[in-house]
Design a protein around this nucleic acid. Structure first.
Length: 487
RNA sequence: CGAGGCGUAGCGCAGCCCGGUAGCGCACCUGCUUUGGGAGCAGGGGGUCAGCGGUUCAAAUCCGCUCGCCUCGACCA
């Protein structure tokens, strides 16, 4: 497997496939998520779902198919998604009598074509219209876990697939202030989750008008930097204003019996997070998973030379596993007799298991266990007792160290730049985040994009104001923004 | 959608130029020996050579078309 920096694309694909996360399906851009990848997704879903519910949101499910006319109701929205919609036009197939191939039955054409949802704002707001009458129905806080389809030009496993899994939250509020607060709250939930569970540092920010979600008044984002120096949007939260309420005529009576349009938000994270995970922590040996989301947190490998030793070390491994399991640790004993220890070490390293315990004949007689964290590879011999009592603590340490390591990497690749020439050099040579002044115009943004390939990833929320001159035009600027080449 | 590369066993590839019995490595199955960093030996199974059409006595190989995949761009969670 190549070293990540040399050929990231090749390395990435190999990790995804060989670690057993996912594989290509016969349909371009559509992937099969394998059990190990799915387990990872479940571990991402669980804490997020809990966080949504803890803040008063309820799960529901809306249909996959959206009448074509719905998309057209919000002008910017349809414009934004028109280029990448899958459309269902027929409801029956038939065998051609001449060629014997199966084809859509031309006599079974739908009256109105159905769009396979690229996102669900339209179908949901069509529904919210009936759910909302009074200020007492507000706020309406709904989330759904679903698949969506966007016919992307250039798919990439997890990072950009034609069909992908996500959650999309859709909320309705009585006031703009409340909706805006909701959008911020959800961005914070995403940032906390990504940093605390995936151990991926992010920058919270606003998108520029050019990069905004189609139909939003304000788009918030969490941006991270991957090991190849490219940026990735890891999650978004939109303040939709009254755009969808007006498009779908969703009004409520306020306390003074006046009719008002509701204020909306939508927010989502997707299976792209798995791509972010791989490209944040991976190394030349493969995947490196943070303990909190790793499907297997500890793998125990017994080693033996004969039948007696096999029985003894395997028994000891299972005994230790049970003790760990009782503490809530996700543990696996690899006692497969068909593979030798070296094979297993490589295999579990490739799959990113955070902690490996080895119990061999020498350990058995000494009462020890060999402990190796995946991210450092440093072997250490500890007492069996310590392995039992300290495993959870070690996992927490690994979780923190992975975050710190990623943070250092991103800091080392974040550059405060005041000259356009320097910015171009950095972008060409190594990539990374560029913190630079911008005059706030779309023209400048576009010119820089065309000349360098870099876009404004976000206008950071927590950056202090700073007087400066636009890196491109020299016009005055109040704050640095984050430029980078992105996925 | 533009430019380049590639489709041969589950995976990775050779064979194609110069048409004539479809091969190698890994994986898989059986047996024996092994087991602290991807084991060894012996035996074995597995293929509409991406698809369609053409040239030919004969096509993985030559010609045409179609489809798919990968990389780089423009578009995007």
């Amino acid at each position: 497997m190549p070293i990540p920096m040399q050929d990231i694309s090749e390395w990435y694909q190999q990790v995804v496939e060989q670690a057993g996360l996912a594989e290509h399906s016969p349909v371009r851009g559509a992937m099969t998520i394998k059990p190990y990848g799915w387990a990872l997704w479940e571990n991402i879903q669980r804490p997020l779902d809990a966080a949504f519910k803890a803040t008063g949101h309820q799960n529901a499910y809306f249909p996959l198919f959206i009448p074509l006319s719905f998309l057209a109701k919000e002008a910017q929205h349809v414009e934004g998604f028109a280029q990448e919609c899958a459309v269902v036009t027929h409801y029956r197939i038939q065998t051609d009598p001449v060629s014997h191939t199966v084809r859509p039955d031309p006599t079974a054409q739908l009256e109105e074509p159905l769009v396979v949802r690229p996102t669900s704002e339209t179908i949901i707001w069509n529904t919210f219209k009936r759910w909302i009458q009074s200020y007492r129905d507000l706020p309406l806080l709904i989330n759904q876990w679903a698949n969506v389809v966007r016919w992307e030009k250039r798919p990439r496993l997890f990072l950009r697939t034609t069909e992908f899994l996500w959650q999309e939250g859709h909320t309705a509020h009585a006031t703009a202030e409340e909706a805006l607060k909701e959008a911020h709250q959800m961005l914070d939930i995403y940032a906390d989750f990504v940093q605390n569970y995936l151990a991926i540092p992010v920058i919270k920010g606003r998108k520029t008008p050019t990069e905004r979600f189609a139909g939003a008044e304000e788009t918030f984002t969490i941006e991270t930097l991957l090991i190849d120096g490219k940026a990735l949007q890891a999650g978004t939260s939109h303040f939709l204003g009254q755009n969808f309420a007006r498009a779908f005529e969703v009004q409520f009576l306020n306390e003074r019996s006046e009719l008002e349009y509701v204020w909306a938000t939508s927010w989502g994270v997707s299976t792209r997070l798995i791509g972010a995970l791989i490209l944040s922590h991976g190394d030349e040996k493969g995947l490196v998973l943070p303990p909190r989301v790793a499907p297997i947190q500890v793998v125990i490998v017994p080693v033996w030379r004969n039948d007696t030793e096999q029985a003894e070390t395997t028994a000891a491994a299972h005994q230790l596993a049970q003790a760990l399991q009782a503490q809530g640790v996700r543990v696996k004993v690899d006692d497969d007799p068909h593979h030798r220890p070296g094979w297993k070490f490589n295999e579990w390293e490739l799959r990113g298991v955070p902690l490996r315990f080895v119990i061999g004949p020498k350990d058995l007689s000494a009462g020890t266990v060999e402990v190796t964290p995946r991210h450092t590879g440093q072997k250490q011999s500890v007492s069996l007792d310590q392995a039992r009592t300290s495993a959870k603590e070690w996992l927490e340490t690994i979780q923190k160290e992975l975050f710190e390591r990623a943070k250092k990497r991103i800091e080392a690749n974040t550059h405060r730049v005041d000259s356009y020439a320097e910015m171009r050099t950095i972008l060409e040579e190594k990539g990374g985040f560029i913190l630079a002044h911008w005059d706030g115009t779309a023209e400048t943004e576009l010119a820089i994009k065309e000349e360098t390939g870099a876009t404004i990833r976000c206008i950071p929320l927590d950056a202090p104001p700073e007087e400066g001159k636009c890196i491109y035009t020299g016009r005055p600027s109040q704050q640095r923004v984050v430029f980078a080449k992105a996925y």
